[in-house]
């Protein structure tokens, strides 16, 4: 019972198809209260659909469980009241000002002391001096701030963010994440989809979705160490050609050029060593490095999903 109380999301066997396309397959998610969980995976893997299923915007074909302690299939209205959802595409009214947008959200949520709430949100997010600007005239970073303010105005217990920082500059991204962490410290549970590895590393937990399946779960360290991946980095001339050749070698799962260095990864250390040995001459030298999350995910994406089901 106590365990149930602390899980903000506890959903099992989630399935959703559009026509004959299975977009989400048997996804089970459990997110503890106050945790930030990152959703990663290639485009079209089912991240957005999963988020929409959780906040009641889509009806699942099957699956059961609780969101914020309520049956997520039947109590969507109550869940919506305590959930904030920030869409991938800016979805506030571009022909209304910042303040008008927030005022609308406050009214539709029937918030008490509406004016104070809106003024407070404007202040907190630094939107105060721009409150009379039309939302459509804002730059990407400011739109994102506004969207976050709108999604959190009703002080939700659960925040779902769908690629919230796409197209936002690094400084604004950093500020955004600092805000997310501050809110999580207050007990807010966050589920965020992203393509950025540095953002994934800022999450408490990470889930990797591929082809509608949640294939890996855990902290960044757990995922890296659990992958069994070995990575070597080599620096020297002619990186482009070496990368292209290495990709085709036995024992190499991925090879990728990073400026003047090439990173190769594989599951078997000896096989990988054999593959890279011919290139170790002259100025070229290999060093074994800790695989990064990106190495792990690139490798996950390039392997057929059936591999993971077999494990």
């Amino acid at each position: 019972m106590t365990e149930r109380m602390t899980a903000a999301i506890d959903v099992k066997g989630l399935n959703k198809s559009f026509g004959d396309k299975r977009v989400v397959r048997d996804v089970s998610i459990r997110v503890e209260e106050g945790r930030i969980t990152g959703f990663l995976g290639p485009n079209g893997a089912g991240k957005t659909t999963t988020l929409r299923l959780l906040c009641g915007l889509l009806t699942p074909d099957s699956g059961e469980g609780r969101v914020l302690g309520m049956d997520f299939r039947t109590r969507t209205e109550a869940i919506k009241r305590e959930t904030g959802y920030m869409t991938q595409r800016f979805s506030l009214y571009e022909d209304m000002t910042i303040e008008e947008n927030l005022d609308f959200i406050a009214r539709v949520h029937e918030l008490p002391e509406r004016r104070e709430r809106v003024a407070g949100a404007l202040e907190r997010l630094g939107l105060h001096y721009r409150r009379d600007q039309l939302a459509g005239a804002l730059s990407g970073g400011w739109k994102q701030r506004l969207a976050l303010a709108a999604a959190t105005l009703h002080e939700p217990r659960l925040l779902l963010l769908d690629e919230p920082t796409a197209g936002v500059d690094p400084k604004a991204r950093r500020e955004f994440w600092d805000k997310i962490h501050a809110m999580a410290d207050q007990g807010l549970t966050v589920l965020v989809s992203t393509h950025y590895m540095d953002e994934a590393e800022r999450c408490h937990d990470i889930g990797y979705i591929l082809d509608g399946r949640l294939i890996v779960r855990g902290t960044a360290e757990e995922i890296v160490s659990g992958s069994g991946l070995v990575t070597f980095s080599g620096e020297g001339p002619d990186i482009g050609r070496i990368t292209r050749e290495l990709e085709k070698q036995e024992g190499v799962l991925s090879a990728s050029a990073f400026g003047t260095a090439v990173r190769v990864s594989g599951a078997d250390r000896d096989a990988l060593r054999r593959a890279i040995a011919p290139y170790e001459r002259g100025p070229f030298a290999w060093v074994e490095v800790t695989p990064s999350l990106e190495d792990v995910f690139i490798q996950l994406t390039s392997r057929p999903p059936d591999d993971w089901l077999a494990q």
Partner: peptide
């Protein structure tokens, strides 16, 4: 068309 439906549906409005 403008994508605002997604936000509207995420609110408790029926």
């Amino acid at each position: 068309e403008r994508g605002t439906m997604e936000s509207l549906l995420a609110t408790p409005a029926t």
